[in-house]
Amino acid sequence: MASSRDQILKAVKQNQPPVTELPVISDYAQPFTDVVQKYIDVLHAIGGQVHPVSSYPEISSILKSAFNGKSIFSSSLEIEEIIEKGINYKNAHAFADLELAVITSSLAVAENGAVWITEDMVQERVLPFIAQHLAFIIRADDIVPTMHEAYEQIGDADYGFGTFIAGPSKTADIEQSLVLGAHGPKSLLVFIIMSK
């Protein structure tokens, strides 16, 4: 008796139509020229907060005042001073009570306000989901216009896990009323280190 795998593959091969060619994906010139401004506008529209800054100390000071006394975690050494010491983040569950996660990224997408992060940028895959609040640090030059450029930059990278995160967690399941903070972070802050 042939395995299910063999039966399925056989049926598919038998039934599939004659081959049609893959299309070429066009270059889509975007109507917006200021990529950073577009990113900021879209992120605002989807419920995120944006802080254009010029330095890491600026980021530290903003976060220190917004999250004074709360637990913060970041893999970003530049803002080490605000990270709560003494907590042993040995596994995913250890982050359960984390108030704020700060993650540095090197790719963001203007058309939808997303930031791309991969496993190597975070201590644990669950980090950007489990924290009550989330912050990203990107550079202005890291912002590309659309998903096409984003995937061009990602190329054939061999990550174990990667994700585009656009804004805070949300749902509109109750009568289409938008609520921020479904299961993931209730707020999202993006710090854009502006080019000189």
Partner: peptide
């Protein structure tokens, strides 16, 4: 993988009018 660019640009705009879902996890 690059075809994800096409589909992720179309999916959520078609579904709810958002430019993309909050999370698109690979």
């Amino acid at each position: 993988r690059k075809h994800l660019g096409v589909f992720l640009r179309l999916l959520t705009r078609s579904a709810t009018g958002q430019p993309i879902t909050t999370y698109s996890s690979h």
